[in-house]
Design a protein around this nucleic acid. Structure first.
Lengths: 195, 195
DNA sequence: AGTATAGTAGACAGATCTGTCTACTATCAG
DNA sequence: CTGATAGTAGACAGATCTGTCTACTATACT
């Protein structure tokens, strides 16, 4: 049996970690496999022992990004207990994200932009990520609006977050998150009450 | 004198037109020069007689896209006369755009995503386009809100449009434009009056 | 000690990319 | 008819891309 099967998991994780960082800031087409390998200090054969293709690596990067995104966001939100504060934290988290030095937009919006519908798996991962965020918003909104209106408002707020990402990407204006939150607050039916 | 100077303008326009179409749906990195040339039926030498590099072609494509975008939007808006109808037309125009078969997102958001800050000229063109749209929104909002609030609301509405573009791109949901307009309407101070 | 294996290093194939250059053709003014 | 020129066709250089393969090394288990 040759050596291409059952490779070690830590190398794989390091590879995904490096690829995540490079693809996030450099783009998927513009960053080549060789650059990822050089930066990770991993041999090409190891990469292809773990993944059948570059697109498969990108797919795993997106899955990892989704995990980290949601874990980081949830941890940040959980520092608050009041429902309105927890909702505000979502936008504050985005603002911090926009202010990070290497911020280059949302990896899922970007993958949709670069690959369009060409690579179905990547398009699907992007869609699932956005749906997961929206579902998370539903949970945050229910205490504020009740279960009836929450899904509709979650879709609206999701759109606000995507808009803030776009504005921050093009104009470099991290304050877009603040403006999105201001809009969100005004759209809350409960706005009159806790402000 | 060799033949690389003073080339004909119609070839150039055809080249830009073809490149616009291909870059819009296929992405900037993924679509190569050769494909543009083959599709346009133009020789490589002609391309490089008109443009010094692929990035220069992309820049001209973006300028052309900005012109067409604004002309098409303004023509659509001008079919309405009531201020609120004119504002609504902006969102309706986006909805029609999202429903076009080859819709693959905003070329300016996409160029920012693919090139990040790497190519300063392209980043700048993206920023100027978004600023131009926002300025246009100011003019539409002034009759509704007065000159004081219009710029702030224009920035908000611009964010809503970018959000709709992102949602439409990832989820393929053209109705994002409708949701953005619903939010916009609720955010208008004059909402209580004309609804 | 000995063997299997995951890893490294990197050559290589084959495709594709941008950009340059040579050679030929079509058009049009005088 | 002649000559200038904008165009076409496409070879070519040089770089870079993905993906495969050979050869060697380090590690770990028995």
């Amino acid at each position: 049996m040759p050596s291409q099967l059952a490779p070690r998991a830590d190398k794989r994780a390091h590879l995904v970690d490096t690829a995540l960082r490079l693809f996030a800031t450099g783009g998927y087409h513009a960053v080549g496999i060789d650059r990822v390998l050089a930066e990770a200090g991993v041999a090409k054969k190891t990469l292809y022992a773990h993944f059948p293709s570059k697109n498969a690596l990108i797919a795993e990067v997106l899955r990892e990004r989704d995990r980290r995104f949601r874990a980081s966001l949830a941890a940040f939100v959980d520092r608050q207990s009041a429902p309105l504060d927890r909702l505000a934290a979502v936008f504050a988290w985005h603002r911090q994200w926009f202010e990070e030095p290497g911020f280059a937009g949302c990896m899922f919006l970007n993958v949709a932009a670069e690959f369009h519908g060409e690579v179905a798996e990547l398009q699907l991962l992007a869609r699932e990520h956005k749906r997961a965020v929206e579902t998370y918003l539903v949970g945050l909104l229910e205490p504020l609006t009740g279960a009836g209106e929450a899904p509709v408002l979650a879709a609206d707020f999701n759109l606000l977050l995507d808009g803030a990402i776009g504005v921050a990407l093009v104009s470099g204006d991290a304050e877009a998150a603040g403006r999105a939150w201001n809009m969100a607050r005004r759209l809350l039916p409960a706005f009159a009450a806790p402000a």
